[in-house]
Design a protein around this nucleic acid. Structure first.
Lengths: 163, 163
DNA sequence: GAGATATTATAAGTAAGCTTACGATCTATC
DNA sequence: GATAGATCGTAAGCTTACTTATAATATCTC
């Protein structure tokens, strides 16, 4: 797993494998930090991993409801908070939705999200150099940046060719 | 009006003037495009101009309700859509809120928003060079970017010194 | 096995954000 | 002054997003 892989998920990628890898990664991260990767947390992550689309919290609930008694919103929000705190899930601000992070980058490094308007798939691109420049520009005006959100909407390769 | 002015609104800036300028600018833009700057549109813009904080749609309604019979949500959303389409208002995605654009930059040029977590004020910085780099990176992975959202949360100068 | 801590469950509720549908009014143009 | 297009109003409703509060359960530590 690295940022060298294609930024946008290819429609024919081995999704089973990318899901499995992400789960293994999550276990490792939690282990390492002595955090508990409880069943509910795992299930929420799995729901998000089921596609490369961001899901709203209530979509996650719907997804989980298929395989267990419908969880309460709070239950899912707590799991999402945990997963985000550990860099396993991103929140897509422009959609109020959540996305499993398929890449193993450290939680602090800046990423930009590429959101396809057509199919809803989301990819990541490393944005560190640009974010740095921006943060610098911000700082030079006296502003102390803490968190950058970069979200680019457009059309993915696949949807461009399958117009 | 230009991007050369301070990116973040100084707490002691001449707000009456910056409001008046923005309104004049709005009139000019509408005139030029033969669009109608109707009373409701003006009032919504004024509500947003009353601060440099982004307001949610329902906050706009509350604001308008002070000086007229409470408008329905749809009324405000229509006005907001119009104002956004004409580059007079930005939507802050990470807050589901709307911000009057105090600067006279053309609607397409990329800007980044600096959002103070403490006081809620929002400033703009020109982000064209960074956005270009990012868009380039996106394109090189086959993605066709349309709209970039860059929102940086942090602490503004004023709030840093008045901890 | 007692106590402290972390996690989850249950129940209920708030409110923001946005939409649909339809009719009325205004404005420009012929 | 008739028609078409844009705008606005009224009324109602829906979904999402998230919170508060409290109790139960599990896990760890001593």
């Amino acid at each position: 797993m690295s940022l060298a892989k294609p930024a946008f998920p290819a429609p024919d990628h081995d999704h089973g494998r990318c899901t499995a890898e992400a789960l293994t990664h999550a276990e490792a991260v939690c282990e390492q930090r002595s955090q508990k990767f409880t069943p509910i947390r795992r299930q929420v992550l799995q729901a998000l991993l089921s596609s490369h689309r961001p899901l709203g919290a209530y979509e996650v609930i719907d997804e989980l409801a298929k395989s267990m008694p419908r969880p309460a919103p709070i239950t899912v929000y707590r799991a999402l908070d945990f997963l985000m705190a550990n860099g396993l899930v991103h929140r897509i601000e422009s959609r109020n939705a959540y996305l499993a992070c398929a890449h193993d980058h450290d939680a602090t490094s800046a990423v930009a999200f590429l959101i396809c308007e057509r199919c809803g798939l989301v990819g990541e691109v490393p944005a560190a150099p640009f974010a740095q420049g921006l943060n610098q520009a911000a700082r030079s005006s006296g502003f102390a940046p803490r968190l950058s959100v970069v979200e680019i909407t457009g059309t993915c390769t696949h949807c461009q060719t399958h117009a």
